[in-house]
Design a protein around this nucleic acid. Structure first.
Length: 801
RNA sequence: GCCCAAGUGGCGGAAUGGCAGACGCAAAGGACUUAAAAUCCUUCGGAGGAAACUCCGUGCCGGUUCGAGUCCGGCCUUGGGCACCA
C-alpha cells in the first residue's frame, strides 16, 4: 500500500467531514480525553510525543466508535525556563523562538492524523490565555488563598541571580561554577495546605494508578500528633511531635538554622559559632540535610527553654536536620526514642533518658517502637497510645500545647524572578501595600522589549514602562510586582479553558464546563504525580469553593505513559547520538506502522528501548492484513466451509472481547497480540468464503482505532462507505465463545503431571470423579490414597495424596 | 538519604494466587525461486535422554499457601520524584 498517498487522502477526508470536531450541543455521551499538553521545546516531535498522543488518540477513536461524543483538544504549555535560557544564550527572544516552535509542532501534530479539536487550541503564553491565569491568581488572592512571605531561593553570587534547582549542580551554579547560597526573598504563595485534608481524602474515589495515589498521599504527608510549647523568656518555642508520650525524655530542643527565634535567643558568646553554622546550612540542600547516613551536625545557641511539665531548663540547639519548612521548624530531642536524636545526643554528649520500655522486655536504645511509659512521674505505666492522649491533654489544660495534625505539604511558591511567564497582577503601593490589579485592567501584558540577561534583578524590574503605574486604590505612583508566575499555575487550569477556549468574557463558562468536566481520561507522564497533578486538584477545589464549578476533581481517570528509550536502553538525547527521528520512521514505514509498533512493542505504562526490527515486523504485519483483505474480497459470495466458519467465529469473538478489554485499560500490546492471533487463524481458514469476508470486515473495524488511515483504506477497498469511524465498534457474540470441552492441568501434590480434556460443564465432585477415573490420571495414582482434591474450574485439578 | 515503581528466554514483552514464557523479533531448518527478496510452514528457556519423559528455571535470601513471577519480611540493582525543568 502506498501509505503516503493513503494517509494524505484520509487526513483530507477527515478534515473535510469534520471527524474530530466535538458536538458542543450534546453533552449526553461526552467523553473528554486529554493528553498533557507539551512544552514547545525543540523543532520536531519526538517519539515520546507520538507515544503519548498517537496512542491516546487510538483510545479516543475507540471511544468514538463506541458512540461517544469525543473531545480531544491540544495546546501548548508555552511559558518557561528553557526559552528564557535559550534567549540568554542566543539572543533570540523567547516569544519569537516559542512561536516558531509552536508553528513547527502544530504542523507535525496535524500530520499525526489524530482527532485533535484544533478549534479549541490554546497557548499559555498568549495574552488571551494568561489574562485568565492572572484572573485566577486574583480570585485566589481575594479568597485569602494567596499571600506573601519570605522564603529562600538559590542565589548565585557571581551571576547575581536566582538559580533554578535544575541549574544547581553539586551545590554550584551550572553556568559559572560558583557556590550557591540560599537567600530569603519575599514571594507569593498559594495556600494549598488549606486543602491538604481534602486532597488526601479525594484520592480514594479516583481511578488513578495506585502508585500515583500513594505518592500523593506521602507527599501531603499527614501525621497525627501534637504541639508542645517550651517557654523561653517572654517567647516560646513550639514543636510538633508524633510521640508526645516521650516528652519526659526530652534532653534538648533543636531549631532549624532559619528559625526566626535563633538570632534573638543566641547568647553573646555563641553568636560567632551560630552565624558560621547558619551560613554552612544555607549551602546544603534539603536532600543532603535529611540524609540519615550523614553525620549529624549542630551548634548550641547558649539559650535554655523551659520543659512544659518539669519546668527544668532544656538547652536549645540549632541543627540542619531540622527543616524550617516542616512542622514548626523546631523539634524536641528525645535521644532514647528517636534514631536521629540518639546520634545527635551521642555526638554532643547530651543526656539520654529512657522513658519508654517494651511490653515484654526493656528494648535496646534507641527504642523507637511503641511501649509503656517509665521515668515519667504520674504518666508511668501508660501505653504509648494512652500516653500521647494524657500528655497532650495535660498540656492543653495549661495552654502549653495540644492535639494537632501536621502535613508535610508546603504552600505553593509561585513567584519567579524571570521574564518568560505570566506577570503577577499585583501593584505595590507605598501607601496601600499590595493592591490587586482591577480585573478590567487584565491582562497585565508582558512587555516585549526587556533586558533579560541576569544581573541581580527580575528582568521586568528593569523595564520602567512596565514597572511604573498608578495605585488602583489611591491613584498615586506605584510599582508593579516584578515577578512572573510559576508555569505550573498556567497548567493548573488549562483543562478548564479548552471546552470554551475562545471565550473573551471569562475564563470559562460554568454552564459548559460543569457538563464537560471532569476529564474522563487524562494521559501523561508519571513525573507529574506530586506537582502538576496535585496543583490541578487544588485549583479545581478552590474554584469550586468560590462557586465557579460544581465538581471536586479535575481528572476522573488517569493513565501514565512510559518513556521510550534509545535502542541502547538509555534515555534518548542528541548528545548520546541515540535519538530516533520520528520523521524518518514515518517516511519509511508510515504513521500507522509507527503507532502500531509503539502499541505492540511496549507495555504502555513502562515504555522501553526502541528497536528498528520491531517496526519492520509491524510493517510486515500490516502487509499481511492487507493480503487477508484481498483474500476476503476473492472469497466473497462463495460458500463457507462449516468447520472453518466455526473456528473463525470463535477466534473473531474472542478477539473482540479481549481487544475491548485491553483498549479500555491501555493494554495496547496485548490488544495487538489478540489481533495477530485472529489474523493467524484467518490464514489457516482462508477457504471459507463469506465467513472469511465477514470476519475480515469485522477485523478491519477492530483495527480502525489502532491504524486509522490503513483501516479506512481497506474498509473502502472492501466496498464499504467511509468513514469506518462512523460504524459502531464490533460487539462480542458470547454464544460463539461457548465450548463443550476444555483442557485442564492435572497436578499431583502440586506438581504438574498431565493435561486432560474435560467437559466444560463439570465442576466440584463431578469433575473430581471424572479426573480420578481418567485413563491418563489413574495410573499415576496407583497404590496411593487420595487425601484431598482441589478443583479450579476450567484451569486445573490438584490431587493431594 | 527519603517516597514510589520495576527486575521473567538471545531481545521486546504475556500471565484475576492455579499449565511460566501469550504475541512478536532474532536464530535454525524446510517449501517456493535459476538466485535473492518477499511469502508460506516447522523448531526455538536450560540440563539429561534415541524417545517417552525427568530435573532445574521469573534479581538474591527467607516466609505464608495444596499451589508464589504474583502475597509477606529482608537485601541487591535500575528507573521516576524530592517542592524554581516541565
Amino acid at each position: 500500500m502506498d501509505f503516503k498517498s493513503v494517509e494524505k487522502k484520509w487526513r483530507d477526508f477527515w478534515e473535510k467531514t469534520k471527524l474530530s470536531s466535538f458536538d458542543k450541543g450534546n453533552f449526553d455521551k461526552k467523553y473528554y480525553v486529554l493528553e498533557m499538553f507539551s512544552y514547545p521545546s525543540g523543532a520536531n516531535l519526538h517519539l515520546g510525543h507520538w507515544y503519548n498522543y498517537a496512542l491516546s488518540d487510538s483510545f479516543a477513536r475507540f471511544k468514538k466508535m463506541q458512540g461517544y461524543n469525543v473531545f480531544q483538544p491540544m495546546g501548548f504549555d508555552a511559558f518557561g525556563l528553557p526559552a528564557e535560557n535559550y534567549a540568554i544564550k542566543t539572543g533570540i527572544h523567547p516569544e519569537d523562538s516559542t512561536k516558531q516552535n509552536i508553528a513547527t509542532m502544530e504542523v507535525q501534530l496535524k500530520n499525526m492524523g489524530a482527532m485533535f479539536d484544533w478549534d479549541s487550541e490554546l497557548y499559555t503564553c498568549s495574552p488571551e490565555y494568561y489574562k485568565w491565569t492572572q484572573w485566577l491568581f486574583l480570585q485566589l488572592y481575594k479568597h485569602g488563598l494567596a499571600y506573601q512571605k519570605q522564603s529562600p531561593v538559590n542565589w548565585c553570587p557571581s551571576c547575581n541571580t536566582v538559580i533554578a534547582n535544575e541549574q544547581v549542580v553539586d551545590g554550584k551554579c551550572e553556568r559559572c561554577d560558583t557556590e550557591i547560597v540560599r537567600k530569603n526573598m519575599t514571594q507569593w504563595f498559594l495556600k494549598i495546605t488549606d486543602y491538604a485534608e481534602e486532597l488526601i481524602k479525594g484520592l480514594d474515589k479516583l481511578d488513578w494508578p495506585e502508585k500515583t495515589k500513594t505518592m500523593q498521599r506521602n507527599w501531603i504527608g499527614r501525621s497525627e500528633g501534637g504541639e508542645v510549647v517550651f517557654p523561653i523568656g517572654d517567647d516560646k518555642i513550639t514543636v510538633f511531635t508524633t510521640r508526645a508520650d516521650t516528652l519526659m525524655g526530652v534532653s534538648y530542643v533543636v531549631l532549624a538554622p532559619e528559625h526566626p527565634l535563633v538570632d534573638s535567643i543566641t547568647t553573646e558568646d555563641r553568636k560567632q559559632d551560630v552565624a558560621a553554622y547558619k551560613l554552612a546550612a544555607s549551602k546544603a540542600s534539603d536532600i543532603d540535610r535529611l540524609s540519615t547516613v550523614k553525620e549529624k551536625t549542630g551548634v548550641f545557641t547558649g539559650a535554655y527553654c523551659t520543659h512544659p511539665i518539669t519546668g527544668k531548663d532544656i538547652p536549645v540547639w540549632i541543627a540542619d536536620y531540622c527543616l524550617a519548612t516542616y512542622g514548626t521548624g523546631a523539634v524536641m530531642g528525645v535521644p532514647a526514642h528517636d534514631t536521629r536524636d540518639y546520634e545527635f545526643a551521642k555526638k554532643f554528649g547530651l543526656p539520654i533518658t529512657r522513658v519508654i520500655r517494651g511490653k515484654d522486655c526493656e528494648g535496646e536504645l534507641p527504642f523507637t517502637e511503641h511501649g509503656i511509659m517509665v521515668n515519667s512521674g504520674s504518666f508511668d505505666g501508660l501505653t504509648t497510645a494512652e500516653g500521647k492522649k494524657a500528655v497532650l491533654g495535660f498540656l492543653s489544660e495549661r495552654g502549653l500545647g495540644g492535639v494537632k495534625v501536621n502535613y508535610r505539604l508546603r504552600d505553593w511558591s509561585v513567584s519567579r524572578q524571570r521574564y518568560w511567564g505570566a506577570p503577577i497582577p499585583i501593584i505595590h503601593c507605598e501607601h496601600c501595600g499590595a493592591v490587586p490589579v482591577p480585573e478590567k485592567d487584565l491582562p497585565v501584558r508582558l512587555p516585549y522589549d526587556v533586558n533579560f540577561t541576569p544581573d541581580g534583578q527580575s528582568p521586568l524590574k528593569k523595564c520602567d514602562e512596565f514597572m511604573n503605574t498608578v495605585c488602583p486604590k489611591c491613584g498615586r505612583p506605584a510599582l508593579r510586582d516584578p515577578d512572573t508566575l510559576d508555569t505550573f499555575v498556567c497548567s493548573s487550569w488549562y483543562y478548564l479553558r479548552y471546552p470554551d477556549s475562545k471565550n473573551a468574557e471569562r475564563p470559562f463558562d460554568p454552564a459548559i464546563i460543569n457538563k464537560m468536566l471532569p476529564v474522563d481520561k487524562y494521559v501523561g507522564g508519571a513525573e507529574h504525580a506530586c506537582m502538576h497533578l496535585l496543583y490541578s486538584r487544588f485549583i479545581t477545589k478552590a474554584l469550586r469553593d468560590m462557586g465557579y464549578l460544581n465538581f471536586d476533581e479535575p481528572f476522573t481517570s488517569l493513565v501514565h505513559q512510559g518513556l521510550i528509550l534509545g535502542s541502547d536502553g538509555e534515555k534518548m538525547s542528541k548528545s548520546k547520538g541515540n535519538a530516533v527521528n520520528a520523521d524518518n520512521i514515518i517516511d519509511t514505514y508510515g504513521s500507522d506502522a509507527l503507532r502500531l509498533y509503539l502499541m505492540f512493542g511496549f507495555s504502555f505504562a513502562e515504555g522501553g528501548p526502541w528497536n528498528d526490527d520491531g517496526i519492520k515486523a509491524i510493517s510486515k504485519f500490516l502487509d499481511r492484513v492487507e493480503r487477508a483483505v484481498d483474500t476476503a474480497i476473492a472469497n466473497k459470495g462463495k460458500d463457507s466451509n462449516a468447520a472453518q466458519a466455526k473456528e473463525l467465529a470463535y477466534a473473531l469473538n474472542y478477539c473482540i472481547k479481549k481487544v475491548r478489554e485491553d483498549m479500555e485499560t491501555f493494554s495496547f500490546n496485548t490488544a495487538v497480540a489478540r489481533i495477530m492471533e485472529l489474523v493467524n487463524v484467518m490464514y489457516r481458514c482462508a477457504e471459507s468464503g463469506d465467513a472469511y469476508f465477514d470476519t475480515c470486515e469485522t477485523l478491519i473495524r477492530i483495527m480502525a482505532p489502532l491504524v486509522p488511515h490503513f483501516a479506512e483504506e481497506l474498509h473502502e477497498r472492501m466496498g464499504f462507505k467511509p468513514s469506518v469511524f462512523s460504524y459502531p465498534y464490533p460487539v462480542v457474540d458470547e454464544s460463539k465463545l461457548v465450548k463443550d470441552e476444555v483442557e485442564i492441568a492435572v497436578q499431583i501434590n502440586s506438581k504438574m503431571r498431565t493435561k486432560i480434556i474435560v467437559p466444560t460443564s463439570l465442576d466440584g465432585d463431578e469433575l473430581t470423579k471424572f479426573v480420578l477415573a481418567d485413563g491418563k490420571v489413574s495410573p499415576l495414582l496407583e497404590g496411593c490414597s487420595v487425601k484431598k482434591v482441589i478443583c479450579i474450574k476450567g484451569r486445573l485439578v490438584n490431587i493431594i495424596i
